[in-house]
């Protein structure tokens, strides 16, 4: 009975250590820029550099244009509106997949809920996302573009994409413990997924049958929502977002059930 109670607590939220998650997030930023004189300032410099590349190199120098738009920066805006969320989504998923293996030294020493470890990855990517989106918003305002009211939906769309990344990340993190090659497979799948999602190109250039298949691509629903809000100043397709919300949470529930079934073996393997 006592043992059951102990296992139940390991599964549950009693061992979610908020202080540990925050400390891991801080350490993640410190380690990323360790030894550099500017330190965490690089977390702001990098999004500025990316924004300059998308706006100046792609839009100005290469002359990439959005069909039907005379605006010089329209393609840069389109690119940024898709790439910033995709980077957060793919970064969360890729890093979450290996989190149990990467943090095995910690898991063996500290009594902590394993799924909560994925939260630090999510938190770190969220900070990066909001820095990137904040700078992007600033660019839009400074260049005289008005932000549409639909921008209020961004936190909800972001929440859905990160729940999906969390669910898929937990699913793969559980399996990677037993099959390490899966981590590389996740990297390959993310590369393919990127090119199968209209981030750097418009969906209209694809053959009709591929466009029809895109409704099954959750990343397409997510990226299109950002495009509609920031580029086309219109509301995202709300029925698709409702379905995606239910799917993302369903995936997370299934991943958590899988994790619970294998938790004891995961701890033994690590």
């Amino acid at each position: 009975m006592a043992r059951d109670c102990h296992v139940s607590e390991l599964h549950g939220i009693k061992t979610v250590r908020v202080d540990l998650i925050v400390e891991l997030t801080r350490r993640d930023f410190r380690e990323r820029f360790a030894g550099s004189a500017l330190g965490a300032t690089w977390a702001v410099i990098w999004p500025v550099v990316h924004l300059c590349i998308y706006m100046l190199i792609f839009s100005k120098l290469m002359g990439a244009r959005l069909p039907g738009r005379s605006d010089v920066y329209a393609y840069g805006v389109y690119l940024t509106a898709g790439l910033v969320p995709w980077t957060a989504f793919s970064g969360t998923l890729a890093r979450s997949a290996g989190v149990f293996v990467d943090k095995r030294h910690l898991i063996s020493k500290v009594r902590v809920s394993l799924p909560s470890l994925l939260l630090y990855v999510n938190l770190a990517e969220t900070v990066t996302f909001f820095v990137g989106m904040g700078l992007f918003g600033l660019f839009l305002v400074l260049t005289g573009r008005s932000l549409s009211f639909h921008v209020v939906l961004v936190p909800y769309i972001y929440a859905v994409q990160q729940v999906l990344a969390f669910g898929l990340g937990l699913f793969f993190a559980t399996l990677v413990v037993f099959l390490r090659d899966l981590r590389e497979v996740v990297g390959v799948v993310l590369q393919l997924w990127f090119w199968l999602t209209p981030i750097v190109y418009l969906k209209d250039i694809l053959p009709l049958w591929v466009q029809r298949l895109m409704v099954w691509n959750p990343a397409c629903v997510i990226v299109e929502s950002y495009h509609r809000i920031f580029v086309f100043q219109e509301a995202p397709h709300l029925p698709s977002l409702v379905i995606l919300t239910l799917v993302a949470h369903g995936v997370t529930l299934a991943a958590y059930a899988l994790f619970r079934a294998l938790e004891k073996d995961i701890r033994d393997f690590l």
Partner: peptide, 16 residues
């Protein structure tokens, strides 16, 4: 304890 995690996911999903 562990049911709270399921509950949290379901409530978050329905709310969003």
């Amino acid at each position: 304890s562990h049911r709270k995690v399921y509950m949290l996911i379901v409530v978050h999903g329905l709310y969003t």
